[in-house]
Structure formats: structure tokens, C-alpha cells
Simulated scan of single mutants.
Amino acid sequence: MTAFAELTSPQIAELRDGPRKPVLLLPVGAVEPHGPHAPLATDLLISAGMCQRAADRLAGDDDLRVLVLPALDYGVTDMGASFPGVISISPETLCALIKDVCASLKRQGLDRIVVVNNHYEPAHVTALRTATKDAGVAYLDLLRRANVARLTDEFRSGSCHAGQYETSLVLADRPELVDTAVQRELPPVLVDMPAAMSAGHKDFVEMGMDAAYCGTPAGATAAEGKSTFDTLTDLLVELIREVGRA
């Protein structure tokens, strides 16, 4: 069993005091539009999928016991505000939530925590970087140059919101949530999101993402998603082992 909240209180005590060091993973995402084809929960599905795969891969580890905490579904997602379905919280709320959750666990002696995020709105990322630093826990920052270099061409291009990169990951994990009939007909929308944000554009429409996606969703495949999940899981397992050595 790898779900933290499915254990009993005595089992958590046994885990904490046992010979294998517990490492807890906190998946974070957002509820925001991902084109006309992919689910609002795309970012969280990717984070949760990574965490589950990492926990499964390390299930037989002699030194570590990896558990997945209940996910934090909500994030800072103002850029999608003009589309139905978006649910955004403030950076202050997100930062406080992360810090409170981590502080609660650390008071119990469960201090090896890794926050895993796949929503990249700048205010959201800044809040997570601040919260994890203040809380003294690890953050898998997929926007760091060394991590970006290991991901797909589309991800590196910055034109990857609900495009081939993210849609492939959902197809690999929850294919029933992708409207593939729509996905296959979507034309490429090439928007360098980091450059657009640097130029002062504050929402998807201003960036030219009238359908709340960019990249090439029509090129997405489950096979690419599985391959990308392997890479993402490699990155997470490497950080888990680093946290376990601390």
C-alpha cells in the first residue's frame, strides 16, 4: 500500500519508527482549462501519476518507504480565468497550505517530504518554491535547466500547454479522459509561453491561445506519454534517494 491516508494511525507510527526511512510525496496541480480535449485536472493527474510510479518503483527498497500524501488539487491559475471551469487560489493561500501540511507532518517526525508539481504558472511556481524553502522540504523543480534538458522537445520549446507533451501523459495514464476525436483534429498553436509572459501577457487569450492550448496535441500518443513518465519518474526517484540520504 502506497497511499498515506489509507493507513491507520498505528501503521503510521510503525512506519515512522521502523527501519526504512519514510519519504512522503505531495502531488500538486491545478484545475484549469487544457484545450477542448484534455481534462481540467491534467496537471494534477501528471503529478499523481509520477508519485504513484515512483512509489511503486521503490516498493521493495530496503532503506526507504515511499508513500503518497493526499493531493493538493488547487493552484494559482489566473491565466485561464476567461475559460469555464477554472478554479484559482491565491499564492498566499497556496504557500500557507503547503507550509501547514508540511509543518503538521514534521511535528510528528515525518520530515522527509517531496512536493511534486506540474503546473507552471509563474505565481504558482514562486509560491511553491517559497513554501518548500520555508518549510525545509524538497521540491522537484521541473523548470530547472538540468531537468528541462531531459524532457521532450515540445516541453523545452515552451509551447506545451495541453499540447503533445501533456496530452501524451494523460493518454498514458487516463486515456478515457481525453476526447481523442477532438484531439486528432486540433491544429498546432505555437506559442512560446515563457517569452509571452516575459512580454507582459497575463492570460491565455492574450498569448494567442484562444482554445486554451498550445503545442501540437494532435501528435500526442500514449507511447510518448509512457516514455515521458519514465523520465519524470527517474527524476523523482533521484530526488527521493537524495532526501533519504539526508
Rank of each mutant, 00 (worst) to 15 (best):
V101Q: 15
L97P: 01
A71L: 05
L236I: 01
A96C: 09
L58W: 03
M79L: 09
L171G: 07
G136I: 05
C51A: 10
G18I: 04
L40V: 03
T130N: 12
E121H: 08
E14K: 12
P36D: 13
T77W: 05
P22M: 12
I46P: 00
P187W: 08
A181E: 15
C51R: 00
A5K: 10
L72C: 02
T2Q: 12
A48M: 00
G109I: 10
M207Q: 06
V28C: 15
G29A: 14
A123F: 02
I240V: 12
I46N: 00
V170I: 14
A13K: 14
A199F: 01
D63V: 04
R245Q: 10
R129Q: 04
V189P: 05
E14S: 14
G18R: 03
A127S: 11
L239D: 03
H34K: 11
S9L: 14
L58Y: 00
D17M: 12
N147W: 02
G208V: 10
Y165K: 00
A71C: 12
L45S: 03
L190N: 04
T233G: 03
F229P: 08
Q108E: 15
R241S: 03
V101S: 08
L26I: 11
R184T: 15
P39M: 11
H34S: 13
V66H: 03
D63L: 04
F4S: 13
E14H: 13
A162T: 09
A212F: 07
D78V: 09
L232M: 07
Q108A: 14
G60T: 06
P27H: 11
T228N: 12
L110P: 08
A131R: 08
F204W: 05
L44E: 12
M193I: 15
Q11G: 13
D153G: 06
S104F: 02
A246Q: 04
G158Q: 08
R112K: 11
G49I: 07
T231R: 09
G208T: 05
M197Q: 06
V116C: 06
R144H: 05
E238G: 01
Y120K: 05
A181S: 13
G158V: 11
G85Y: 04
A218F: 10
A138N: 07
A3Q: 15
T8Q: 14
D62H: 04
V66S: 00
A196P: 05
A54Q: 02
M209D: 04
L40E: 06
V237W: 00
A211G: 00
E206N: 02
I98D: 02
L58P: 01
P175G: 09
A30V: 02
S104Q: 13
T180E: 15
H119V: 06
V191F: 01
E185V: 02
L110T: 13
G219M: 10
H37I: 14
I12D: 03
E176C: 06
K202S: 08
D63N: 03
E224K: 06
G244H: 01
G225N: 07
P187K: 10
E224P: 00
L69H: 10
L67H: 05
G85P: 13
G35A: 14
A127N: 00
R245G: 01
R174N: 11
A220L: 06
L232D: 04
R16Y: 12
T180G: 07
R112H: 13
P70L: 15
E166I: 06
C102P: 09
F83L: 05
V101C: 08
T93Y: 09
D73S: 13
Q52T: 08
L69A: 09
G163F: 07
G85I: 02
V191E: 04
K226G: 12
T132F: 07
